[in-house]
Design a binder for these strands. Structure first.
Lengths: 218, 218
DNA sequence: CACCCCCCAGGTATAAATACCTAATACAAA
DNA sequence: TTTGTATTAGGTATTTATACCTGGGGGGTG
C-alpha cells in the first residue's frame, strides 16, 4: 500500500536545533519537512498557508510561545497533529500543552527513533508521549486524582444524579422537572444527602461532591 | 544482535480467552508464554515461582483481583512488567491499576499488533497505553488538574475571602457577622461574584471556586 | 411474614438567597 | 480633576432552600 509522506513543520527559536532536527527528519523515508518557524506567530501563519500534517514545536519562543500557537492552530486547523518537543519535563507545561491541544509530547533528549515514532503515531491521530512524560502524567494523575472514597458507595444512583445536577446550578424545581419528579421528592433527596455528608446547605453538598470525585473539575 | 525471548504470564478467569491469547502470543517470535493463571492468587504464586518478564492480566478475577495481585507483585517482584488487559475503559480501574503498579493498559478489543507492541514496550520498562486509555488519561488529567487560573486575578481579596467562606457553608448573615459587615454588603459581593463568573446561584460560585483553584480539593 | 431501605410525595413554617433598585465613601489611575 | 472601581449599605419583592412532620409503594433479606 502506498503511503504519502508525512508533511512536517518545525518550530524552534534556535537555528542550530532546527537544522539538526531538519537533517534528522530528512533521513526518515516517509517524512517531508515542509517548513520551519522561529516563533509562534510565524508558526501559525505558515501552518495556515501550508497545512502540515504534523508540527514539532518548542514551547519557549519569542512573539508567541508554543502554547498559544498550539491553541490557535488547534482551533483553526484542528486536523494538525501537534507534537511538543521541549527540554524540560515539568508538570505545568505538559498540562498546558495538553490543554492547548497538543497530541504528543517528546523531550529534546529523545533519540531519533523516538521522534520518528512520535510523528508516525500522532499522524494517525493517536497521542504519543515519551516515557518520561508518561511517567510524569501518571504521577500527576495519582497525585491529583482522588479515588472515589467509600463514602461514594453510600449514595444511591438517584442521589448521585441529583448531586451532579445540584452542582450544575439546577434548583430543586428544575431537577424535579427534568427527572419527572415532584419538587418535594428532590428536596427529600437533598435533605438525605445533606444528612449523609454532614452538610448544612447545598454549599456543603457541592464541596463534598468535588472533594469526593462525584463531580469533576472540568 | 541476539535478543532472548520475552517470558510472558497470562492471567484471566476465562479459559477461552486465555487460550486465544496464548495462541496469539505463540505466533510472535520473541515471545514465550510460560504460564497461565485463572485468578489473582495463582498469578502471584506462579509469578514468584517463575519470574516472568511480562504479565498480562485481567482485572476481574476470583479469589484475588488483578489490582490486588498487581500491587503484590509490584512489591515483591518490582522488575515484572505488568500489563492490564481488560474490556472496559473506565476511569477508576485505570487509576487503580496505575496506582497498583501496572505499566501497561490495553483494551481487550486491541488487535494482535497492539498487544505485541505493548509487550515489547513494557519489556523495556516503558509504559504502554492503548489509544483509548491514553485519551482517558489525558481526560482525567485535564479534568482534575487545575491550571493556575487567570480568572483568579479578577477577584478582589474581599471577594475571594467571601468565596471561600461561601464554600465553607457560611450563609450571608454568618459571613457578615464574621467579617463585621452588613448582611446586605455580603449579598452585594455575592451578586457581583455571580455576575463575574456567570453563575445563577451559590452552586455556580462554588463549582467555579473549585474549578479555578480558589478553593482546593484537599 | 416482618423488617429495612430506597424512592416517592405532600403540608407547614421559617430562613436564606436572589432580583430589581439606590447611594455614600475611599482610593488609585488617567 | 475626573473617572473608575472596590467596598460599604439600605429597601422591596419574589423565589429557593431548609426544618420539621406525615405517609405509600417496591424490593430484598432474615
Amino acid at each position: 500500500m502506498f503511503k504519502r509522506s508525512i508533511r512536517v513543520m518545525i518550530a524552534d527559536d534556535h537555528h542550530l536545533f532546527r537544522n539538526g532536527l531538519h537533517d534528522l527528519l530528512d533521513q526518515i523515508r516517509n517524512i517531508q519537512v515542509i517548513g520551519e518557524a522561529d516563533n509562534g506567530q510565524e508558526l501559525v501563519r505558515r501552518t495556515m498557508e501550508t497545512s502540515p500534517d504534523i508540527i514539532l514545536t518548542d514551547i519557549h519562543m519569542p512573539l508567541m510561545d508554543g502554547i498559544a500557537a498550539t491553541r490557535e492552530i488547534a482551533r483553526r486547523k484542528p486536523d494538525t497533529g501537534i507534537i511538543v518537543l521541549t527540554a524540560f519535563n515539568k508538570e505545568e507545561p505538559i498540562l498546558r500543552m495538553l490543554d492547548a491541544g497538543a497530541l504528543g509530547y517528546v523531550l529534546k533528549s529523545a533519540d531519533n527513533e523516538e521522534i520518528a515514532e512520535a510523528i508516525q503515531t500522532v499522524s494517525q491521530r493517536k497521542p504519543y508521549f515519551c516515557r518520561e512524560v508518561t511517567e510524569k502524567l501518571t504521577e500527576i494523575v495519582s497525585k491529583n486524582y482522588q479515588l472515589p472514597p467509600d463514602a461514594d458507595l453510600c449514595f444511591s444512583e438517584r442521589e448521585k444524579e441529583i448531586i451532579r445536577l445540584i452542582c450544575r446550578e439546577f434548583t430543586s424545581k428544575e431537577i424535579a422537572y427534568s427527572l419527572n419528579l415532584s419538587k418535594r421528592t428532590v428536596e427529600g433527596h437533598r435533605t438525605r444527602i445533606m444528612d449523609k455528608v454532614g452538610a448544612k446547605s447545598i454549599a456543603g453538598i457541592i464541596t463534598y461532591a468535588f472533594r469526593s470525585g462525584i463531580c469533576y473539575r472540568k
